[in-house]
């Protein structure tokens, strides 16, 4: 049985023929669309390595059937930088050494982008830690991750205040 769906992936509309309804968004990205930045750590919603944004919200792509997301707009790690220009969060992750092996990093970054957009954590380190707890990092780079997100939040806040003033 063939199903065709259409997705907007990193701003580009893609019409996709799904030969199997069992395909998850994660496997679609990695195995069919050659977008391998999104990682599979557990495939069961328990590690966060596969985090992507779907219609602007962070979710675990391993627990999302592609066929159910017909029409969705998806952002993956490949769509975060603008050309050679890194997103401030990416720069902050490098500066704060918010990773070691790097395998969880795309998921951490997508999760952090989602967290910033959700607007619940602000510049509160404790809320950032809680909000980033859906992304395991076995190397233990949590301190750098928290510092990186906090720095970007503080910059955003300062920018907002400047604009208001």
């Amino acid at each position: 049985m063939n199903h065709s769906i259409s997705l907007t992936v990193n701003g580009v509309r893609r019409d996709i023929a799904l030969t199997d309804p069992r395909v998850t968004l994660l496997d679609l990205l990695r195995e069919q669309l050659d977008l391998t930045g999104t990682k599979k750590g557990c495939d069961r919603g328990q590690c966060g390595a596969c985090t992507i944004l779907v219609d602007g919200r962070r979710i675990n792509s391993c627990l999302a059937l592609a066929i159910s997301h017909d029409g969705a707009s998806i952002t993956t790690i490949e769509g975060v930088a603008r050309g050679d220009e890194l997103h401030p969060l990416q720069t902050a992750f490098i500066a704060h050494d918010g990773f070691q092996c790097g395998f969880c990093t795309p998921g951490q970054l997508m999760s952090a982008l989602g967290l910033i957009d959700e607007g619940q954590a602000g510049c509160d380190a404790e809320r950032i830690r809680e909000g980033m707890s859906g992304n395991l990092c076995r190397c233990g780079a949590y301190a750098g991750i928290t510092d990186a997100v906090l720095e970007v939040q503080q910059k955003l806040k300062a920018e907002k205040e400047r604009r208001v003033a």
Partner: peptide, 9 residues
């Protein structure tokens, strides 16, 4: 419950 990602879905 769960994680932010799971609560979003």
């Amino acid at each position: 419950g769960a994680s932010a990602q799971l609560r979003n879905a």
